[in-house]
Design a protein around this nucleic acid. Structure first.
Lengths: 172, 172
DNA sequence: GCCAATTTCTTTAGGCTTCAAATAATTGGC
DNA sequence: GCCAATTATTTGAAGCCTAAAGAAATTGGC
């Protein structure tokens, strides 16, 4: 069987773009593999969080954002950082305020804005979870060499940039 | 400021494992980057699917699985492949049968088993969506060279294997 | 054949998530 | 100061998702 070649570039009598149905199977496979990896790890982390601490992954993620911001964040900030919708954050925050992990107050300078931050309880519980969480992640990636890790970081940064550009193109 | 060094290995008078709080910050950063990439691309694909075809990503994913299995799949198969819970599949399938995209019948040899497959309509619609979907993915990854793609594939395969081993260890 | 264990699927309760529409507050141009 | 546009958040409807419990069917050891 002769090796498959990519479709030859066609010359077009008009100036309009050439429509060669290109083969994007590799990119598709890459995307599926990326998704599989993430789903796998995410599911594992989710399961461990709930088993060990009876907490959901979204709650943990939200607390992680707030732990990095001692002065608090607005809901919009959180929404952008977590890449989830505003309405989603509203609900999440509500439940975490309810359970005493979050403090929420209206900004004094702009009454549209809600500033949330971790309570003492919230911070303490998060720190405990985060320490263990870090060991889980380390274990999940344990077979990667430091070089693998660096290489992946680099390639994923490139991927992120590419995807962001593509997304921006669409929004134009 | 002197460069930070990793914690020195401590000698322990007992034979028990040395408890050096190791630094796993790199793995953590890698995980966050992986998650960001996936979330970014997934959100983009979700948005385009709904804009162009008014279909959700989970539905598209389910149809993609079935497109590869002309003889149909059982719900359990689907659940494993998609890495989602059984109950989730039950609901998804219900809605897709309702909309005429899926055909569902009880296996003749094992009456516990439900076999689902794409209807003619389902297959036709999926094929149309899939063709466009592939171009979106290609565009999202467009800044990666073929070598980058190969490298990422390799490293993600390694990552997947590592995570699966880790998950298996936990279940022991 | 019997029945305990297993497998397949559904159901339920609760939470997560999105999108779109609505509400409320601020800002900027005039 | 007024008001249109913008920004921040909430609400509501629909769907997605999980974990756990339950129902139905099959299997395997005896």
């Amino acid at each position: 069987m002769p090796p498959r070649v990519t479709a030859p570039e066609m010359l077009d009598s008009e100036t309009k773009a050439v429509e060669t149905p290109e083969d994007h199977a590799d990119e598709l496979r890459l995307w599926l593999r990326l998704l599989t990896c993430t789903t796998l790890i995410e599911g594992e982390v989710r399961g461990r969080l709930r088993q060990r601490f009876d907490v959901t992954l979204p709650r943990f993620d939200l607390m992680a954002q707030l732990d990095k911001a001692p002065d608090g964040m607005t809901l919009s900030d959180v929404s952008k950082r977590m890449m989830v919708s505003n309405g989603n954050v509203t609900g999440l925050v509500e439940r975490l305020v309810e359970s005493g992990h979050l403090d929420r107050r209206t900004s004094e300078t702009d009454r549209r804005v809600q500033v949330i931050r971790l309570t003492k309880l919230g911070r303490a519980e998060f720190r405990k979870m985060a320490a263990e969480h870090e060991t889980w992640i380390a274990d999940l990636f344990v077979d990667l060499s430091p070089k693998d890790v660096r290489e992946l970081m680099r390639l994923l940064a490139k991927t992120k940039a590419s995807a962001q550009k593509s997304a921006a193109r669409r929004r134009t």
